[in-house]
Design a protein around this nucleic acid. Structure first.
Lengths: 176, 176
DNA sequence: CCTCCCCTAGACCGAACGGTCTATATTGGC
DNA sequence: GCCAATATAGACCGTTCGGTCTAGGGGAGG
């Protein structure tokens, strides 16, 4: 009962987005998992589901950002490996879920775009500090490769796709 | 009226999967877009939506496979660029949609896994023929990077993520 | 005190969901 | 001629959907 209502809503929504995607997650599911009253959703997120999903996407993006403190690729990799195994490969990336929601959820799409941009900027800064060539280019490809690897890892039920990305990208991330 | 019913069902389902994902696509939508009778779905796909989506995923995977005849990365890139622009960035990869559908759609998840495996094998064979080192490793990362780039390209409404993947991966795909 | 805000409880709405059912063509092969 | 397979049309089912509504509880600040 400790956590405030808004936070509980976001946490539950993120969890459900990772399992079932945007359209596979119902308001009733969020209510059940968070134990919050129906009306409270529309108090905190007047625009309804799309706004809730967009806010959850932003929050999830911030969380991952803190995990990869300073853009350390190895920390990101380790965290995703652990998370996938902990949840028995029954989850994906909530930002990917928002990105694939489609035109019915414009706010969610926008949120996904902004999170991806933030991730790229963080990674590019870290790469630049390490003296790596083409930091922006590599940062974008890193985000792409990570997102694809998470998707493959989920259906393969194996962390191999993630590790392979780390191996291959490691060859490119070298000081010039 | 030319195309047989089963084919029209698959074509329409693929199109809708790319726009709205698995849970965002309803049976009624498929019926409307394909102009097929409701009962015909359950004639060709007795297990209902999950089986239809799985079959559509397989068919889409085969189609992309033919596009990348022999595993030519450049052909794949050009096709995705053209497709995204043609549809004004309102589509994604249908296999990704199936991969993120979640545990309610076990057949679709299985289909996504098999398509990813086929793509990796095709790419690995092509890389091996070109005398590239670590063909399996690179093939897996290529699939990851492509899938992630398609996702980013969609929300960014730009082909830049795809081109960046091509540039960076081109540096790795060199004869040993 | 009263009022405003946050929160809960739960009924209620019309629409859409996936799936089943009956009934009626229209085929092509035996 | 007959039968099975394929197709169409459309009613119908119970459930769930996202969203709105009313009614009331409790705490903080005027």
């Amino acid at each position: 009962m400790a956590a405030p209502v808004r936070q509980r809503l976001l946490t539950s929504t993120i969890d459900l987005l990772r399992r079932h995607g945007v359209h596979g997650t119902g308001i009733a599911d969020v209510l059940r998992e968070s134990g919050v009253a129906r009306q409270s959703i529309y108090h905190h997120f007047p625009d309804g589901k799309d706004e809730l999903v967009a806010a959850a996407t932003q929050a999830a993006g911030e969380h991952v950002r803190r995990v990869a403190q300073g853009g350390h690729v190895d920390a990101l990799l380790a965290w995703w490996e652990r998370t996938l195994i902990e949840h028995d490969y029954d989850i994906g990336c909530p930002v990917a879920a928002a990105a694939l929601a489609g035109p019915d959820c414009p706010a969610s799409t926008r949120a996904a775009r902004e999170v991806f941009a933030t991730w790229r900027e963080d990674l590019a800064s870290a790469l630049r500090l390490d003296g790596v060539a083409d930091p922006e280019l590599l940062a974008g490809v890193l985000v792409s490769a990570f997102e694809g690897a998470i998707m493959q890892a989920r259906v393969e039920r194996s962390v191999t796709p993630l590790r392979d990305v780390a191996i291959v990208m490691g060859r490119l991330i070298v000081p010039e």
